[in-house]
Every structure is written in structure tokens, then in C-alpha cells.
Design a protein around this nucleic acid. Structure first.
Lengths: 329, 329
DNA sequence: CTGAAAGCGCTAACAG
DNA sequence: CTGTTAGCGCTTTCAG
């Protein structure tokens, strides 16, 4: 149907080898020959068949992005952002991208096997057995938004600690001394980092934040609202809530309203992720912006370095976070 | 590196043709032979190489999803939902999926050319010249969330008219007689449908909704808030706002609050899309749920039908909408 | 700088 | 039911 390298060869009067070179190694073909080839190609609407190239080169330039988060997927704004960054970078570098969700690990495994991907970016809470299976098939692996110690895998993460600090120091600078944390059960890595950062930073500022100041809940608005109501029922009620993500923050705002507390006067609230909902809430939600797009781009870069056989791929890449102050604090 | 059909052939003692059949046409191989083949394959960790299959079959089973919406992408919850449905269906049917955004049409064009996709799902506001270029390369094309008359292309859309009716009749049943519409500048098709539905339905119910009851704005919270303030400044102020999507609805809520109106008592608001923000708003937003996931699935089905040479692929597939009543009305 | 030729791993007649 | 064989479109030595 489409024209092939043979058609171009015939029309331009050179061998198929030369046509091939003209496209893949232009500088190994004499200028005038090259022009002849391109002209013929133009006429015939020829462009190299990627499948045949992959076949001959024994290289697919195809990678996969696997979202390992229970129930989550591309629908999660956070992962959508990462995915978008990945897409941009794969497109730019002429790689091909396959996307899967870990909900169906067998399938994902199959994909990476049948579809001949050469590397995998694992987003979120990847199970170690997945990782080792992937590596045993000697695929290149990069972790994004996750970090596993002991394994020799490059990872790309946001500056969790720094992000938490930005939010907390902002609240402290506004005079808050009694800050509570609303934490959701997300992936162990993320939760762990944010939790640790909260404890260390409050402590460093001389605030007595202990277990009573931290409440764990499911990652839904309602669950967060309920948890926050408890937090606000303490005799010594917090004047600020540091929520570990925006959904929880929305729950906190809901709780405040139910208890007749005004935001930010009676209660300040900060979120984390800077999702699109921040601007829709009333008041608008102060949040820590995470550069998901950049994280996606960088994970592709790391993976490509791995595939290129680079010996010194940085084991950890940290993307800085940024505070976006809005009406809720 | 990986084992090939030859390895399996050798180990199992049958010809490569039989190995091939065992995998692609199991019923054309004697049970016992088949078992031998699969055993050998197991031992060798063999699985067919999709690239080589594509090469030999002259068929890639690869399709593309192209989001044609200015500035939008997978980050848009709506398109993410469609994309998710598409992914589910392509995985289920062993197709491969390539995703692009129309921001880079040249690139998208290239993709579909080099990467040998056989069909394209165009999401949103595809330009006719894109479509015809695609068709001229004789790719199968399906439109999702869009409809272009005069072209012979199957399309999959939500029941826009029905969705608008659900929202409006809900408001009317709550006693509202003065309903205004807040419309964003989205794609002509979507806007057109919702606009027409609003006019016809209000008219059918004897409400005098004219140009003064409709306000167009940019698709941002702030722009919607400003537009809504104007709407609410009329001497004969509306008691309900029908927003053409959830972002605009959030803007409307913001405007109401600024003007000291309580929701839903002084002003009812309904949205459209039923995005995840609905539950985060205060009060929660009544909205029309659109089954994006289903739309995605169905577009794949239509595309596959087209590729299979089906003569009677339905030209239009309509996915029903559903009202989700919440506190804002 | 260019051409001839040998594959890459698999499928699909065709023949048995 | 199974084996033989000729490609699929391109890359890549190896000679010239």
C-alpha cells in the first residue's frame, strides 16, 4: 500500500542501501545523491517503516509507563501530569510509549513482553517483585514518585521534604503554633516522607507536634472531613491544618465549615499537589506545587541514559517544589 | 537475547510453522503437539515477537488517540476519562495504543505515519483538514466527543441534549423559573449542542430565556465568576445558573459568594461533567455525569469495526448522561 | 561513497 | 495435521 524503500530506490536510481543511509545516516551519502533520494521519497510519499526498522535494527525504541497505584490511573491529575511529561519527552526523542495501569499486572507484564518494550518507568508504589521480574527480563527500569532503598534503580522524585517545609514555614510565619497534619493512606514512600518532614520541621521550630496532631485517613474528601473534625475537637484545637494533599485539604475545609470555623481566620488550611481544584475552592487553597511534568521528562531522560549504557546515571533525581499561597491561609 | 520461534521449534521437535500455529491458531494443531510446543515455550520463556508478527502479517493492530483541543491534553479530566476507556479496550483486545496531542499536529501526523498506526480516534475539535489528510492516507478514523456533518465518519458522543434536559428539568422541578446559562468557549460542537438544548428546553417549559439569560466566557473560574456577576446584576436576577461545565459552575459559586448570595437558597447552581471537584466544592456541586470511559471504549469498538471492514458501523453512537444531584441545587 | 546480499522473527500459502 | 519456503521492509557488514 505505502511505498517502500524499493520504490524509492527504483525511482531515484540508487540502491536500497543508499536510500536507507540517506535517511538514517545522511552524512554518509554524497550530497547530490541524497537530494535525489529525498526527491524521489517526496514524490512517493515515502517514509521509513518503523516496524521494519525495528526488525532489522533489533531495537524498538519503545518504552512503557506503568502506573502502580491502587485504583489510580491516568485519571489521577498527578499521574496525568507525569504522563504528559513522559509523552512530551518520548515524542521529542522519537521514542514510542506504551501506557498501562498496574491494576492488571499480568497484562502489563504481557505488554512489556510482547510489545517489545526496552524499558519501563514505574510510577508510584511498585512492588519489589514486579521490579525484579522486569529486571530479570533485563529491561531498563526507572522509578518515578517513589524510591526504594537497596535496589540499584534510578528514581525521580519531588522534593517532598522541601515541599512540606515550604508549607509549614509559611504557616509558622503567619503566626501558627498549633499545626495539625492530615495524612492520607497513599503510597508508603510518599506518606513516609511527608510524615517525617512534618515531625522534624515542627520540632525544629519548637512546636510540640506529637501523635495527637496527626490524623491518618482514607484519601477521600469525606474521610478527611471526618478525621479533621476529630482533630478540631481537641480542647487545644489546632489553628492550622497541613493536609498531605489537596483532596484532604478540601475535606478539612468542609470540616471547618461544618463546625462554623471561618477560613483562614479561625483555621488556616494548606494542601499539597496544587491540583486544578485549588482555584475552584472557596477560599482558594494554598498548596505546594509539584512539577509533575518535569518529573515525567526526567524519568524518560534517565531511562534513555540507562538504555544508552551510561555508567553514571544519577541514582536519585529531585525536582524542587514551590509554594502557591492563596486565600486559605 | 530473547528466544525465538526457532528455539521453540528445535526444543519441541516440530517445525516453526507449527509453533506459529500453536500460538496464533491453536485449534489447527493437534492437542498433543500443542502441549509440546507450549511446554518448550515455557522453558525458554518464549513469547511471540510482536514486531516480527506485524512485519509478516502486514498488520500492526496499532491505533492512535489524538486529542484535538487547544491547550488541553490528558491533563483534562474529561479526556483522561476517554483515554482511560480507550486504554482499557485496546488492552483487552490486544491492540496497541499511541497517544498524542494536537498541539503538535506535524508530530502527530508523523507519528501516525512512521509508527504505522492503522486507525485514529480524534478527540474534540478536529480540524477538517486533519481528518481528510488522515483519510487520504487511508487510515480508519473515528470522532469522539465531536460530530461533523457531511463527513462519513463514525462518531461517539455523549447525549448532550439529554444531559442538559436533566439539569434543567431538575431546576425547574425545584421551582426555578428564571434560569441563566453560563457558557464557555469550548469546541463549537459541544457548545452548540448545549446552547441549543438550553434554548429549546427552557422554551418548551414556557420560560422566557433569551440572550440576556446566556453569557459566554472563557473556560476559567475567574472568567466565569466575572460573567456570572454580570448575570446576577440584572434587575430581574436569575434564581438558578446552569453552567455548561463544572469549572464554570465553580466560577458561578464564587460570584454568588462575592455577592452575598447563599447557595442553594438564593441561587442554585448546576454543573456539567461531574468532575472530581464536585465533591470538593462547598456545597457540593450538582452535575451531569458523562460516561467518558464508555465513550472511550465505544470509540475503540467503532474503529475496530471499521478496520474489520464492517459495512454498517453506526454513524453516530450516543452515550446517555446522568444527573447527580448534590447540595448546590 | 555505493552496491550486493544476508539476515531480523514470524506468517501464510502450498504441498504433503 | 504438519513441514517447506518465500517473503514482510529495512539495516548492516563486506567488497568494491
Amino acid at each position: 500500500m505505502n511505498s517502500t524503500i524499493y520504490d524509492v530506490s527504483r525511482l531515484s536510481g540508487v540502491s536500497i542501501a543508499t536510500v536507507s543511509r540517506a535517511f538514517s545516516n545522511p552524512d554518509r551519502v554524497r550530497e547530490s545523491t541524497r537530494r535525489k533520494v529525498f526527491e524521489a521519497a517526496e514524490v512517493l510519499h515515502y517514509s521509513p517503516n518503523a516496524i521494519a526498522q525495528a526488525m532489522a535494527r533489533q531495537r524498538t525504541d519503545k518504552i512503557a509507563f506503568l502506573i502502580c497505584k491502587e485504583g489510580a490511573s491516568i485519571l489521577d491529575e498527578f499521574y496525568a501530569g507525569i504522563c504528559n511529561g513522559i509523552m512530551g519527552e518520548t515524542n521529542r526523542t522519537d521514542y514510542e510509549l506504551v501506557i498501562s495501569t498496574a491494576a492488571d499486572w499480568d497484562m502489563a507484564a504481557n505488554t512489556s513482553k510482547n510489545k517489545q518494550v526496552e524499558g519501563v518507568i514505574l510510577g508510584g508504589n511498585a512492588r519489589p517483585d514486579m521490579i525484579s521480574e522486569l529486571q530479570s527480563r533485563n529491561l531498563a527500569v526507572v522509578l518515578v514518585n517513589n524510591r526504594i532503598s537497596g535496589l540499584d534503580i534510578p528514581c525521580v522524585v519531588s522534593d517532598e521534604y522541601g515541599g512540606v517545609r515550604l508549607a509549614l514555614e509559611h504557616l509558622i510565619s503567619r503566626g501558627h503554633q498549633n499545626i495539625a497534619m492530615l495524612a492520607g493512606r497513599f503510597s508508603p514512600y510518599i506518606l513516609g516522607e511527608r510524615y517525617r518532614a512534618f515531625l522534624e520541621i515542627t520540632q525544629a521550630h519548637g512546636l510540640a507536634a506529637d501523635a495527637r496532631h496527626i490524623k491518618l485517613c482514607d484519601p477521600t474528601v469525606e474521610s478527611a472531613a471526618a478525621a479533621c473534625q476529630e482533630l478540631l475537637s481537641h480542647p487545644d484545637r489546632p489553628t492550622a491544618i497541613f493536609a498531605a494533599n489537596d483532596v484532604l485539604a478540601a475535606g478539612a475545609m468542609k470540616a471547618a465549615r461544618r463546625m462554623g470555623l471561618r477560613i483562614p481566620d479561625d483555621l488556616a488550611v494548606t494542601g499539597l499537589d496544587d491540583s486544578s481544584a485549588c482555584g475552584m475552592l472557596e477560599p482558594e487553597l494554598t498548596s505546594v506545587h509539584i512539577d509533575c511534568h518535569r518529573m515525567g521528562e526526567l524519568s524518560v531522560a534517565r531511562l534513555q541514559a540507562l538504555l544508552a549504557g551510561d555508567q553514571d546515571v544519577p541514582p536519585v533525581t529531585v525536582v524542587p517544589a514551590e509554594l502557591r499561597v492563596r486565600g486559605s491561609s
